[in-house]
Amino acid sequence: MARKKTILKSQILETAYQVVKKEGFEGFTARNIAKTMDCSTQPIYLEFKSMDDLKHELMVKIRAYIDETIYKKERTEEPMLNMCLNYVYFAKEEPVFFKALFFESQLDTEQMHIISYDQMMKLFEQYDGTKELTKAGKIKIFKNIWITVHGTAVLVAQGFLKFHEKDVTDYIKQALEQSVPEYKN
Rank of each mutant, 00 (worst) to 15 (best):
R63H: 03
K35G: 04
P79R: 01
Y71Q: 00
I33M: 14
E94R: 05
S105F: 11
Q119C: 11
A100V: 09
L54K: 03
P79Y: 03
F97S: 04
S50M: 08
M121Y: 02
E93T: 08
I70W: 10
N86Q: 04
Q106A: 14
D38E: 14
E78W: 00
Y117W: 13
A34P: 00
T69Y: 10
R75D: 11
T76I: 06
C84N: 07
D108S: 07
M80F: 02
D53G: 05
M120P: 05
M120Q: 05
K61M: 13
F103N: 09
K61R: 15
T69N: 09
I62S: 13
E110P: 02
E57V: 04
R75N: 15
S40K: 07
E78D: 15
L85M: 15
Y45C: 02
E68M: 10
Q42I: 07
Q111R: 11
D118S: 09
D108L: 03
F90S: 04
A100M: 08
Q111D: 10
V60Y: 03
E78M: 04
M59V: 03
E77L: 15
L101P: 02
S40W: 00
K73N: 03
R63V: 05
S116A: 13
Y87F: 14
K55N: 03
E93C: 06
T69H: 07
L46T: 04
P95Y: 07
A91M: 09
M112E: 06
D52Y: 10
E74F: 00
F90T: 03
T109P: 01
L81D: 01
E68W: 05
F48V: 11
M121R: 13
H56M: 06
